[in-house]
Design a protein around this nucleic acid. Structure first.
Lengths: 202, 202
DNA sequence: CCCTGAATTCATCTAACGTTGAAAAATTTT
DNA sequence: AAAATTTTTCAACGTTAGATGAATTCAGGG
């Protein structure tokens, strides 16, 4: 089995357009998701990418640089989400939030969300990144348009329910919520978002 | 400087009733809070406790045992919380939840909560502990008494908002929510809990 | 078609980790 | 008070991590 059709890897530059850099970023995303920052080893990432561990240093200056590139550089495409959220009527914003985020996160079976939370709880830089990027750029945008007052406080309230929803569904995986279909989640949670954005909060 | 008033520590049993075990548990709680499971080193914990790292093995069988003892053994006294929550009227349960949890957690400036989340996101055992212990024993108790139906689903909904509240307030520390006083938090979030427990969710 | 530079692997290096076993001192038991 | 037990430090081991420098191979410009 596993007949050696290829010669044993020799050193030196590899032929063809093999994009080592991209292979590393993809592998890193996977391994960071599965293992967290500390648990993920440079060697494991390099092995999965099919290259030598030294390439991490060559291309990213080290593990930290690869992490910044692979995990902190948005796996959740905020532009699209913001656009879709800005398109809905004020009364439908709660439902839109639940649907959009659950759809995105369910796609990776929660892996991306879990990785983000692992980073946020274990990595100072990641917590700042989430704060500045996610909340400030995504939410105050949407909320400044729809909320009557207290934009910033309302944005943080929305944040609590978003993060909590993901934590229970993907990280702690508490049933029956972890397996609930999206319609059920919408019925239960959308009113919370709706009130945090357009309702009375004091 | 640093005149050596004490003789250099010699080996052998120390005189007096110095409780090494307890010193280790306390130090471990601090270091696990600050560094998470992987980041916390046995040596750092032992140094803070003022003893040798080998004592961790002697008293707890290893790092894992110390973690179980220091972090997984309830820093939140569930008995008291459950009692207080069971005492309130059905219509006041939302406010009671916000007040009780924020009061407890604010006491440690969020350190205990942060440690728990770090453990939950990085440690399988901790996630299970939170699930079985916190949700099942604490919430289904309170909720089974007050909720009309769907006890388990309602309990998980409550969980989402509790965890999210703590994550934004203590871990990500997003303002203005992180510094909001408890009355403000009650006004904003209590209705969410109230609805998750006694309201319509489908 | 050579020659410079970029890409890649390999073999190490150093540092840090959790753990262990033996030695020594204090306490407890007999 | 001698013997047995418990507590503690110390030195060291085996592992594993991220990083590095030299050697080697390919690509591209003149």
């Amino acid at each position: 089995m596993t007949e050696k059709t290829q010669a044993t890897r020799r050193r030196g530059r590899r032929p063809g357009g093999a994009d080592t850099r991209e292979a590393l970023v993809n592998a890193a995303r996977e391994v960071f998701v599965e293992q967290g920052y500390d648990g993920a080893t440079v060697r494991a990432i390099a092995t999965r990418a099919g290259v030598d561990a030294a390439m991490v240093n060559h291309w990213f200056g080290g593990k930290e640089g690869l992490f910044a590139e692979a995990v902190l550089k948005l796996p959740f495409n905020p532009k699209d989400v913001v656009e879709r959220l800005l398109a809905v009527e004020a009364d439908d914003i709660g439902e839109a939030i639940v649907r959009n985020f659950l759809t995105i996160w369910d796609n990776s079976r929660g892996g991306i969300f879990t990785a983000l939370m692992r980073s946020v709880t274990s990595h100072e830089e990641a917590a700042r990144a989430l704060k500045d990027f996610f909340f400030k750029h995504v939410f105050t945008h949407v909320i400044a348009k729809l909320a009557p007052d207290n934009h910033e406080f309302r944005a943080t309230l929305v944040g609590t329910q978003i993060v909590g929803m993901g934590m229970v569904r993907y990280v702690v995986k508490f049933e029956p919520l972890a397996s609930a279909d999206i319609d059920t989640m919408v019925a239960a949670i959308a009113p919370t978002f709706q009130r945090y954005i357009t309702g009375k909060i004091d």
